[in-house]
C-alpha cells in the first residue's frame, strides 16, 4: 500500500484553477522531488497532502485513510506528516528546544523528559545541539530551517513535506540544509520535496515529478526526467533553470 495516494485532485482559488486533476502516489521510503515553473501548482499540491489547502475535488489518502473525508481525524493524521516551510515559520516566542517540544507535549502528551530527550536528539541530528537555548531570531536562516526540520522530526512523522525549503536562504546557507535533507533521505525517511535545486533532485530523489499548469507532465527516475526529458515543456523548463543566461534563438 502506498503511503500517500492522491486521486483526481482539483483545487481552485477563485477562478484560478491551480490543480487540474492530479493522480500520484508516494511509496514508503521513497524520496520524490516535485519540480516545475512557479505557478505550476507544486506548492499547492504539497499543501493539499496535509490539507493546509482544502481541495475542491479528489482524495488524499494517507496510510489508507482518506483525509479529505469530513469524518477523518485530521489533527491525528497531520501528526504523521511533518512539514517544512519556505519561510521556516518557527515560533519566535519559544526557544529552539521549546519549538521542538511544544507539540510533543500538547499533542502527543509526552512527558517533559521524553519530549526534551527526543527534541535534543533531533536537534543533534540537524547539527544544532549548541543552539538549544537560543531563540529563532538569533539564528541564521539556514539554522532556522534546520530547527524547523528538527521540530517536524520530533513528532516521529511517517512522511516529511518540504515546501521549497532553501528558496528563502542566502546561497551560502543552502548547502547545510540540503546536507541535512540528504542525510534524512539516506536514513530511509519518506520525503516529498518541492524544490528548485536540480542537483539535489538529481542526486537524492528516487523519482522526479515535473508539473506545469496544474497537471503532472511527466515523472520518473531523475536520470530520465532531468537527464533526458521526453516532453517539450520539461525540456524548456530545464533549459531555463540549468542555463539561465542562455538566450533562445529568435
Amino acid at each position: 500500500m502506498a503511503l500517500v495516494e492522491i486521486k483526481n485532485l482539483h483545487k481552485s482559488f477563485g477562478t484560478n484553477h491551480v490543480l487540474r486533476g492530479i493522480d500520484f502516489t508516494v511509496e514508503q521510503g521513497e524520496v520524490v522531488c516535485v519540480i516545475g515553473p512557479s505557478g505550476s501548482g507544486k506548492s499547492t499540491l504539497l499543501r493539499c497532502v496535509n490539507l493546509l489547502e482544502k481541495p475542491q475535488e479528489g482524495q488524499v489518502i494517507v496510510r489508507g485513510e482518506d483525509i479529505t473525508d469530513p469524518d477523518c481525524h485530521l489533527d491525528a493524521a497531520r501528526q504523521q506528516i511533518g512539514m517544512v516551510f519556505q519561510q521556516f515559520n518557527l515560533f519566535p516566542h519559544l526557544s529552539v528546544l521549546a519549538n521542538c517540544t511544544v507539540a510533543q507535549r500538547t499533542v502527543l502528551k509526552r512527558g517533559p523528559q521524553d519530549a526534551d530527550r527526543i527534541a535534543r536528539a533531533n536537534l543533534e541530528r540537524v547539527g544544532l545541539s549548541d543552539k538549544i537555548h537560543a531563540y529563532p531570531a538569533q539564528l541564521s536562516g539556514g539554522q532556522q530551517q534546520r530547527v524547523a526540520i528538527a521540530r517536524a522530526l520530533s513528532m516521529d512523522p511517517a512522511l516529511m513535506l518540504f515546501d521549497e525549503p532553501t528558496s528563502a536562504l542566502d546561497p551560502e546557507l543552502v548547502g547545510d540544509v540540503l546536507t541535512v535533507m540528504r542525510k534524512l533521505a539516506l536514513d530511509g525517511m519518506t520525503m516529498l520535496v518541492v524544490t528548485h535545486e536540480m542537483a539535489f533532485a538529481r542526486e537524492v530523489a528516487d523519482r522526479v515529478v515535473f508539473m506545469d499548469a496544474g497537471v503532472i507532465v511527466e515523472q520518473g527516475p531523475p536520470a530520465d526526467v532531468i537527464g533526458s526529458p521526453k516532453e517539450e515543456r520539461t525540456r524548456t523548463f530545464l533549459r531555463r533553470v540549468l542555463d539561465p543566461t542562455h538566450v533562445e534563438p529568435a
Binding site: N50, L52, D75, A76, R78, Q79, I81, G82, M83, F85, Q87, N89, L90, F91, P92, H93, V102, A103, T106, V107, L108, A148, R151, A152, M155
Partner: peptide, 27 residues
C-alpha cells in the same frame, strides 16, 4: 501574527484552539 504560524502549528497536529492558545495569543 503571520498566517504561517498557524499553519506550522496545525501541521504539527495542533487543533485550532490549542494553536490559538500556545502559538498565536502569546505572540
Amino acid at each position: 501574527v503571520p498566517k504561517g504560524q498557524v499553519e506550522a502549528a496545525r501541521s504539527l497536529g495542533m487543533p485550532a484552539g490549542l494553536a490559538m492558545r500556545k502559538i498565536v495569543l502569546p505572540q
